[in-house]
Write a protein that binds this DNA or RNA. Sequence first.
DNA 1: TAACTATAGCACTTTTAGGTAAGTTATTGT
DNA 2: ACAATAACTTACCTAAAAGTGCTATAGTTA
Lengths: 106, 106
Amino acid sequence: MNTKKYCPLDHTMNLIGTKWKPIVLFHLLDGALRSGVLQKKVPGISNKMFTQTVRELEKDGLVERIVYPVVPPKVEYGLTERGKSLKTILLSLDSWGANDTSNKLV
Amino acid sequence: MNTKKYCPLDHTMNLIGTKWKPIVLFHLLDGALRSGVLQKKVPGISNKMFTQTVRELEKDGLVERIVYPVVPPKVEYGLTERGKSLKTILLSLDSWGANDTSNKLV
DNA sequence: TAACTATAGCACTTTTAGGTAAGTTATTGT
DNA sequence: ACAATAACTTACCTAAAAGTGCTATAGTTA
């Protein structure tokens, strides 16, 4: 028996409710990317926050980390099936922002 | 001429990319609510964060603050048209979390 | 042999988010 | 007279998030 009542958005916010996670996930929608390439696509993120963000996304099963045993290191990040299920939401978020009036007028 | 390139999700994240904003907005989807009622619907939020959150949402034109000049005070919050345009996204976020497997199995 | 590479970890500091408790308001009911 | 009320506001403090700079790795190329 579960005594905790359902709290709207609670689960979702715990998984992707941070500043960087949706942005990182968004850039993986078109396919896996090398670590450095992905990081460059996220303007303003620090090295530390990037690592921390993808680590959490990996822990939560939203992204997959593929390590190639070469030197210098090569690591790719891609969406898992669970991560891909966010596609609609991520595209909606982006297109909302792109179409929102204040984005154009200010 | 605008020299800044378009950064996906940047605008969206600036407006609603915090822990509390999506939750507050979600609870207003069915119509305006009195301040106290709305706050009770957001579990775990402190009085201070609630006030701060709705103030920012108001500043950004996503919610409307309606003050009734009575004593004791009566204040209602409702979505603006701009706020209502988030409806699809908010519902998607909620239903994603509700259907996400790990939410059931863990 | 020394520099370069891509990725990430670590220690340290700063910045921001957030919590707690108190005070403010003006009218109504006791 | 005074307590109760709803919605804040402020001051003060702690905890969490995030930035900065340094380190390690090991094979390839100059």
